[in-house]
């Protein structure tokens, strides 16, 4: 990624309501964390989309490599025995 001469890039996460997790909504540029929060409020929560905001400098995020998708995630698809539907439960057994 090329680096802009201006303000650094921040990733924005918003909690839409109490009890839910923060969710990534997008990014923005700001000179520091305080400004990033203020800008995030104006850019991403103009219509009551959130009650809490996290901002993280984008260059502090480490992402998994898409080319390693298979080695990372394929094993979880072949382990069907990790799901309750894999097991036979005799008729007449309830609360399970």
């Amino acid at each position: 990624m090329s680096e802009s001469k201006g303000w650094p890039l921040w990733e924005v996460f918003v909690r839409s309501k109490q009890g839910l997790n923060h969710k990534h909504v997008g990014s923005l540029r700001a000179s520091d964390a305080t400004m990033a929060i203020k800008n995030a409020r104006d850019v991403y929560t103009r219509r009551a989309e959130g009650i809490s905001i996290w901002v993280v400098p984008s260059n502090n995020i480490t992402a998994s490599d898409p080319s390693e998708e298979d080695s990372l995630f394929e094993p979880s698809q072949t382990k069907v025995y990790r799901h309750p539907t894999f097991y036979d439960v005799p008729d007449g057994i309830s609360h399970m």
Partner: peptide
């Protein structure tokens, strides 16, 4: 409010362009 929305739309879109490696200033 409407004009402020347009500014917001511009910002969402510049951010989307940046995810492709575009330099915002450029």
């Amino acid at each position: 409010a409407k004009v402020q929305d347009e500014a917001g739309h511009g910002l969402y879109l510049y951010s989307a362009a940046e995810t492709l490696g575009a330099d915002r200033e450029k």
